[in-house]
Design a protein around this nucleic acid. Structure first.
Length: 157
DNA sequence: GCCAACGTTGGC
DNA sequence: GCCAACGTTGGC
């Protein structure tokens, strides 16, 4: 079981949207970056834990926890010419892009802003805090995961 | 809105 | 395979 941080612009898809999806589960589709694609396709498994991060908004922050409930499978939106994420090069034989299904677990008692993360000895080093970090699916260490829960005020004992 | 950082594209 | 140009991300 691994830990991840996944970014989403809340105006596009928020933690709230995930919580109110059918079965509190939604496909994490539309990833069009090869490094993130490789992680989704090859590394991400059902049971993995996810930090849900809101990016490109008034208060970028880790806002909740989620869980991967289905590992990497072809992102069919790439083959839909009406989709915003359409890729004419994607075919059934070569889907190119992959997605996972993610299920809502909880909202953090309080969002952890970048200021919160920057002030923490472990979390300041997270990939998401690195300048210019654009990867929308990022590995998280067990130490980072635990520190997030503690800082957010979740009992981890 | 600004701008730094980055990924991708395409000419060569 | 190089690398400049371009488009996008994302914090501020």
């Amino acid at each position: 079981m691994r830990y991840w941080l996944m970014k989403s612009e809340p105006t596009c898809f928020s933690l709230d949207d995930l919580e109110h999806s059918p079965g509190q589960t939604a496909p994490w589709d539309g990833v069009r970056n090869f490094q993130a694609r490789n992680l989704l396709r090859d590394e991400t498994k059902a049971g993995d834990r996810v930090l849900f991060y809101h990016s490109s908004c008034s208060e970028p922050a880790i806002v909740g926890l989620a869980e991967v409930v289905r590992g990497g499978y072809p992102d069919h939106t790439a083959q839909d010419s009406r989709s915003d994420h359409y890729d004419p090069k994607a075919t059934p034989a070569n889907p190119i892009w992959y997605m996972v299904d993610v299920k809502f677990r909880m909202r953090l008692p309080r969002p952890l802003t970048r200021q919160d993360l920057a002030g923490h000895p472990v979390l300041a080093g997270m990939a998401v805090m690195q300048r210019g970090s654009r990867l929308s699916v990022q590995p998280v260490t067990a130490d980072e995961w635990r520190a997030v829960l503690v800082l957010a005020g979740i009992d981890v004992s």
